[in-house]
């Protein structure tokens, strides 16, 4: 029971790291980016290639996954995404679905369709007993890393100059521009950062979530749930939503495997109906 809770927390933390970039794209830029999972997948594959082909340590792979995915995000933002900030939602959906399709086929082409496995360092594999609760070492590692990231993220947003610029750009793009903030630079950097986080999440999640070319499609709905249930105006909203979803999903798969996913989708729809605009208070005012 506690083990399930623990696994659920680890899973939820991962979901948050994966989805918080999407929170920003949706909330800040009002951009429906269904291709967010493609960045996570990129991070996962980067780790797999570095570890399995070049034998680089797992601990070096994680920052590399973050940086490389962030770079990919920055390039795509500058070349493609930024043209579509003002486009209709339908255009954004079609565009990002196109990116998903391309990434799925490209992953299949370069890496093959099979599940990818990574060999974790020995100190991270296996389980240990703490106060009678069986705890996976890797899950503990995940929780610690993600928790540190969450705190860092909160600090960056609330304490740094970049954070205040970002919040200004969220509140009113035109006023922010008038104040001399380079909004498009802030957007690009934020997009890259969010993509990097997704890449990091993908790298860490390869062990827990699995990694194959269908990753962006499989997890798209999970990211969307995190964002829709958590809202886009705070960090804590999506964080709580991700934890809830993680615990519910793990528990659901364990106790009621037959209807687990069904319950989650149903809950999402109920949430959307009860608070359709409240959840998107910032995003919907367009």
């Amino acid at each position: 029971m506690l083990t399930i809770l623990f696994d659920g927390i680890a899973y939820g933390m991962l979901l948050f790291i994966l989805a918080c970039g999407l929170t920003i794209t949706l909330g800040l830029m009002n951009f429906i980016n269904l291709a967010h999972g493609a960045f996570a997948m990129a991070g996962g594959y980067i780790t797999v290639v570095m570890m399995n082909r070049y034998g680089i340590s797992f601990y070096w792979c994680l920052p590399a996954a973050f940086l490389l995915t962030a770079a990919i995000g920055a390039i795509l933002e500058r070349t493609l995404y930024r043209w579509l900030y003002q486009a209709s939602h339908l255009d954004q959906v079609l565009f990002s679905v196109g990116i998903v399709f391309m990434s799925v086929a490209a992953a299949d082409y370069f890496m093959g369709g099979q599940q990818q496995l990574i060999n974790l360092p020995p100190e991270l594999s296996g389980r240990m007993e703490i106060l009678g609760v069986g705890i996976g070492r890797y899950r503990l590692f995940t929780i610690v890393v993600c928790a540190v990231l969450v705190v860092l993220l909160q600090l960056i947003l609330s304490r740094t100059r970049f954070g205040s610029r970002l919040r200004a750009a969220v509140d009113d793009r035109r006023v922010a521009m008038g104040l001399g903030i380079n909004v498009s630079f802030v957007f690009a950097l934020t997009f890259a950062f969010g993509s990097g986080l997704a890449g990091l999440g993908g790298a860490m999640g390869a062990e827990i979530l699995g990694l194959d070319p269908n990753f962006p499609l499989k997890f798209m709905i999970y990211f969307l749930i995190v964002v829709s249930v958590g809202g886009t105006s705070t960090i804590s909203g999506p964080f709580l939503a991700a934890m809830l979803l993680g615990i519910a999903d793990v528990a659901g798969k364990y106790y009621v495997p037959a209807i687990g996913p069904f319950v989650i989708y149903a809950l999402m729809i109920v949430m959307l109906i009860i608070r359709p605009s409240g959840l998107f208070a910032r995003g919907a005012g367009r």
């Binding site: 949706l26 429906i32 939602h89 339908l90 959906v93 709905i221 969307l224 829709s228 037959a258 209807i259 996913p261 069904f262 989708y265 149903a266 999402m268 729809i269 959307l272 109906i273 359709p276 605009s277 959840l279 998107f280 995003g283 919907a284 367009r286």
Partner: peptide, 27 residues
């Protein structure tokens, strides 16, 4: 379910319904 809300909530609601149907068919 799609009467209220923005494009985004409609997208997610319709997507969610389709996923639920797929899950039902599968189970």
């Amino acid at each position: 379910l799609i009467l209220r809300g923005s494009d985004l909530t409609r997208l997610m609601t319709t997507l969610g319904i389709a996923l639920m149907m797929a899950e039902v068919a599968n189970q």
